[in-house]
């Protein structure tokens, strides 16, 4: 009877701990200092596929659309070299939807940032404390894709100059 009770107790604790750990792993919000290098992207077009494949909705091809989306209040992300996305919550002390130029000026740029990394329910979030390097736009994919979407470049550009 005593050994049955012991076994039973261990089973109960194991089952509960297992599920509790899964839940905690998805809701952790403890920050970790991070130095991250990646491209500033428009998360909606990248994640939704609304404009086509991921290779076409970054870089120069998507630059103007990224400006539209940022001005439109769509969350900005950092796409790192491993393909992970970090949703930017603050940029150098500034809230990301503040009507300033700071977040507009770095669209499509490859930056190196220092800040705090949070993970909550499977999503990476980033408080950018400082941008320590900006390599500018380094993905010249308009050479392959043109402007994405096509109407993000004026139809009669030359005649309007």
């Amino acid at each position: 009877m005593k050994s049955h009770f012991k076994l039973f107790s261990v089973a109960v604790v194991s089952v509960f701990t297992c599920f509790a750990n899964i839940n905690l792993a998805f809701s952790a919000t403890e920050p970790k200092p991070i130095e991250i290098k990646g491209e500033i992207i428009d998360t909606w077009c990248y994640l939704s596929g609304v404009m086509g494949g991921q290779d076409a909705v970054i870089g120069t091809a998507h630059h103007t659309c990224a400006l539209w989306c940022t001005a439109g209040g769509i969350p900005v992300g950092v796409l790192d070299e491993d393909g992970q996305i970090y949703m930017v919550l603050k940029l150098k002390g500034e809230d990301t939807l503040k009507q300033s130029d700071s977040i507009m000026e770095i669209q499509s740029d490859v930056i190196t940032a220092k800040g705090l990394h949070y993970v909550r329910d499977g999503v990476n979030y980033l408080i950018v404390e400082d941008v320590i390097a900006n390599d500018g736009i380094s993905n010249f994919n308009h050479e392959d894709y043109g402007s994405v979407p096509p109407n993000s470049f004026p139809k009669k550009y030359l005649s309007n100059q």
């Binding site: 120069t60 630059h63 103007t64 499509s108 736009i137 402007s147 993000s152 470049f153 004026p154």
Partner: peptide, 8 residues
């Protein structure tokens, strides 16, 4: 429009 300047 591509972030590379007017010449581009």
């Amino acid at each position: 429009y591509f972030g590379l300047g007017k010449e581009a």
